[in-house]
Design a protein around this nucleic acid. Structure first.
Length: 232
RNA sequence: CUUAUUGAAUCG
């Protein structure tokens, strides 16, 4: 069973939707993973409608299947349906996990659904997902997009811990982006300078450079660009 | 840490 599923995911990841489809229908046995893999294959080819059809036809659904479908909607920009599915999970007794929450927080941020976002935030605290770094990053990103920079910062501070130097490069880049979106480049720059080099990535650099460029300060952009270490 | 789903910028 494992090997069939592996074969199926190889086919879909290499973009052979038609072959994946044939393989899927020809499989001697199909478990939840097989159905979900096929669903994702459709979604990646932008056949969201087909994906949803498969989702509805699945003999059983687990959290991963729900996540896959929610992510598919979110990726296609259909945040309404993504959020709708999230609500429907409860009714079918599927429990959201950290992947669900990250996807939903992202959808909230992109659709500027502040009310719901804050509600979700409370939900995940209650569910005990507080400490997950991907969750923290998603919170920072969402609040940043919503213009709630203080809330973004609060989530960030909790994630970086006592010394304030915890977390990873993704978290720090997300916080930087939150500043860059909501404040002047110099404000963002201050945060950038206070970022431990270990937690700076090429993403931090490009975020900072484009912040200057967007503000029209091409000189500062160029100057910073020239300071980027070779490896980045 | 390889059977399915998830976190950051730019450009393509």
């Amino acid at each position: 069973q494992f090997s069939w599923n592996i074969m199926l995911s190889i086919l879909s990841q290499s973009g052979h939707l038609d072959r994946a489809e044939k393989f899927f229908t020809g499989m001697p046995r199909r478990d939840v993973a097989s159905w979900t893999a096929m669903l994702v294959a459709y979604a990646k080819s932008n056949r969201i409608d087909r994906a949803k059809l498969l989702f509805d036809q699945m003999p059983e659904r687990n959290t991963v299947s729900w996540n896959a479908m929610i992510c598919a909607f979110a990726r296609s920009g259909d945040f309404e349906r993504a959020l709708g599915l999230f609500r429907a999970m409860d009714l079918e007794g599927a429990r959201p996990d950290r992947v669900t929450f990250v996807a939903i927080l992202d959808a909230c941020g992109q659709s500027l659904a502040m009310e719901l976002g804050m509600w979700i935030h409370a939900e995940l605290l209650a569910a005990g997902f507080q400490g997950e770094i991907t969750i923290s990053t998603a919170l920072v990103e969402m609040y940043g997009r919503l213009g709630k920079i203080e809330d973004a910062r609060r989530a960030f501070d909790r994630a970086t811990g006592i010394g304030g130097a915890g977390g990873d490069a993704v978290l720090w880049a997300a916080m930087l982006a939150a500043y860059a979106i909501n404040h002047s480049p110099s404000q963002a720059r201050e945060f950038f300078e206070n970022t431990p080099p270990r937690l700076r990535s090429s993403v931090s650099w490009t975020t900072m450079v484009t912040a200057y460029a967007r503000a029209g300060d091409l000189h500062a952009a160029r100057q910073l660009f020239d300071k980027i270490p070779r490896k980045n």
